[in-house]
Structures are given as C-alpha cells and as structure tokens.
Amino acid sequence: GLHIVDQSGSGSAKKINLGNPPSFFYGPLWSPDSKKIAYTDKRLNLWYLDVEKCTPVKVTTDRFDDPTSRMNESWSPDSKWLTYSKFLENHLRTVFAYSLDTGKESQITDGISDARYPVFDKGGKWLLFAVSTDVGLSSGWLDLSSFQHPILRNIYAAVLKKGDPSPVEPQSDEEKTAEEKKDTGADKAKEADQGKAGEKGKGGEKKKEEPAKVVIDLEGIGQRIVSLPIKAARYEGLDAGKAGTLFLSEIVDVPRFGQPNPATVSKFDFTTRKTEPFLSGIRAFAVSANGEKVLYRQGEGWFIAGTAAAPKQGDGALNVDGMETYIDPREEWNQMYREVWRIERDFLYDPNLHGLNLAAAEKKYSAYLKGLGGRADLNYLFDEMLGDITIGH
C-alpha cells in the first residue's frame, strides 16, 4: 500500500490500499496542488489517486518492459493533466497527455521519432519534450550489441492552444533607441510594482497565486510543434522551472558502460532564447512545484538552492551528518525473507513458479527464521528455499 506521513516524521501514517493483485509500486509523484499522487507499478501501469478519495485510477499501460527507460510522467501546473512517454509497437516512445476530467489519453507526437521526458511549462501554454531519430540501434536493450551507441536529442515545444503564439516567433533585429530602452525599463518597473501590489489583499495579506489553467486543443496539434534553439545533446531529463524557463540534464553521448555518468544541467530562458550553464557533476536533480528551488546531489552531498541563478559551490548544503538509522536485525531479516518471496512472485518469468505453491513454501521455511544466528544463516536459508523453484540460469 501507500503510506503518507508528515515530513517531520511525527504522527501516524495514513495507509492507502492500492488494490489487488498486489504488486511492486514505484515513484509516487505529488501533483502541484498536493491533492493527488501519480505512481507506476511493476506491470507497466501508470496510476493516480486522490488522497482524500483513496481510490486508484488507472491512466494507461506501457507496451514493453525496458529497464533502461520509463514513462517519465509529470503533472500540469493546474493538476488537471498528466503527460508521459509510452512505447508504440515500433519500440519508439511517444508523448501522450491524459485528462483527469475526461479520463481520456491523447497522443501528442507522431511516433516516427523517439520522444521522451515531457513536461508542461509553468505558464501552461507549452508542452516541452526531447526527441531523437538515432535510437534505433539502442532499442533492443536485452542484446549487448545495443549498448555504446551515441544518442542525441533535440528539444521541442508543442503549443497547446490554438491561436497562442509560438515560443520561437521571429524577433525584430532592429536595435532599440535609448529612449525606447528607457520606456521599456520604466514599463517593466511599473508592471513589477503593480504585481507586488496585486499580491496583497485586504489587511495586507499576500494573495495566493493561482496556477495557470491548461487547455489542450488536440486538433492539429502536430502542426503546432516547433523546434527550440537548443543544442542537440544526450538529454536524460527535462524539468520545468518558473514560467518560461527549462532545465536540461545531459550526459555524454556515449555513456561509460557500468559506471556512473554524472549529468550537466543547463537552463534555457524563453525570453532571451539562451542556454546558460547551471550545474555539473550532478547525480540527482529535482525542481520544486513552484519552480523556485532545486534539490540536487553533487558528489556525496545534497543541496537546496534557488533557480534564479547558478548556485555557488557549497551554497545550500544540507547537513545530513547527524542522520541515524536504528535497526533491529531480526526484524530486518524477517522483512527480507518476505521480500524475497514477493520478488519471486512478481519478477520470475513463469508466474506459476514451475508449479511451486508459493504460500506453502513461504510458510514451510519461515519456521527457520527464529533460529538464525547471523546474516550468513539468512543467506543459506535463501539458497535452500529458492532451490524449490528448480531453475538454473
């Protein structure tokens, strides 16, 4: 099931049953309004649930299992849409959008190229994603010949609503006069002052900013997809910052086999249409729902920083030296014992486990748990009990 507890660790957990048959579940992802959670399972399904209603809703099911990639689901700013990339029969990933209001999914990209990592811009007008036309040699992940091929991706934007302008409309190359620059600066300052004033309601209270409403006109959306002026690279993730900004995580185009490949993160600004370096040597990267903060792992350290400018080395470091974990070895061994049988139940190629009665076998060998003298004994127990499946590899 899904357990929700206060981030301070205090209080009891809210436990939500995710239904039958039981499975392994991954990647719980909060919606921006903090009312819904999206997640996936081992059976290639994408789900979401309303935290108050506690009823799982199936969104879609992927066609093929591929441990090297996933659907990369993400929420719209108004929490009314989910977007993700799903395999077609041609083994290429294609961007889809799912409406929570109608319960229907719609294909966004044409499927003749590999499209991944879709995210909504915080302004609600564009859907951004990475596209590659050279993944063919790497699509058969089970064959070693599919490894070590270069892959490059370009970044595209789909204009969601008919009539909205393209984010890359031609700009005038005429230089502004000093007077025009002065007027523009005065107008921006005035707009900023008006914005600050509008943030406060009666009694000087700060007015809550409403998220951008997302409207998707599906008819002709393929004709409203435009290429962004961003270099081609092996992008492995996109994250929406504040409205009009996009973070791009890239690795080397031919990753080292069996070794970590730290990412370099850059930031694209739709106003200036420029990409600037943001971070390097990154092992994990996430942007807050409002686009104002980033949590990232660099080396062995964790950091939180603002998104307005590239963080300075060491700024925002989290002190995790005092974190401790208390364990009861016997409780841990009992949990590991149950976990091994769950893994066999859900991941063995034969759902019938070569005729083995899983419940009976689990009960039979559980009698030996009380007599374990150490971790080596537990490993020996695993060897003995899993031999009942009678399989070699």
Rank of each mutant, 00 (worst) to 15 (best):
G1P: 09
G1V: 02
L2I: 05
L2S: 08
I4Y: 10
Q7L: 13
S8V: 04
S10N: 14
S10A: 12
G11S: 10
A13K: 06
A13R: 13
K15S: 13
S31P: 06
P32Y: 07
K35I: 06
I37P: 00
V51K: 08
E52Y: 15
K53N: 15
V59R: 02
D65T: 13
P67M: 00
E73P: 00
E73F: 00
S74E: 01
S74M: 01
W75Q: 02
F87V: 08
L88G: 05
E89Q: 10
E89L: 08
E89C: 05
H91L: 12
L92S: 04
R93S: 04
A97H: 04
D101F: 00
I112P: 02
Y117H: 10
P118A: 08
P118R: 06
P118H: 05
G123P: 03
W126P: 00
T133L: 10
S146N: 05
S146H: 07
Q148V: 04
H149S: 13
R153M: 04
K162R: 12
D164I: 08
S166I: 08
P170V: 11
S172H: 10
E174P: 01
E180K: 12
K182G: 06
A186Y: 02
D187K: 15
D187G: 09
A192E: 11
G195A: 15
G195I: 08
K196D: 13
G198H: 02
K202D: 14
K207P: 06
P211L: 01
G220L: 09
Q223S: 15
V226H: 09
V226E: 11
P229Q: 09
P229Y: 10
A233Q: 12
K242Y: 06
G244V: 01
F247G: 00
L248E: 00
L248V: 08
V254D: 04
P260H: 03
P260V: 05
N261K: 01
P262L: 10
T264S: 14
V265H: 06
F270T: 12
K274D: 03
I282E: 06
V287I: 14
V287H: 03
V294W: 02
L295C: 07
Q298A: 12
Q298W: 07
E300Q: 15
W302L: 15
F303M: 03
G306F: 04
A317R: 13
N319A: 14
N319K: 11
V320T: 11
D321C: 08
G322Y: 07
E324W: 06
D328W: 03
R330C: 08
E332P: 01
M336T: 11
M336I: 09
E339I: 07
V340W: 07
W341V: 08
R342G: 05
R342Y: 11
E344V: 15
L353C: 09
N357I: 03
E362M: 13
K363F: 06
K364C: 07
A367V: 14
Y368F: 00
K370R: 09
G371V: 02
G373Q: 15
R375Q: 15
L378E: 03
L381D: 02
L381M: 08
E384N: 10
H393Q: 13
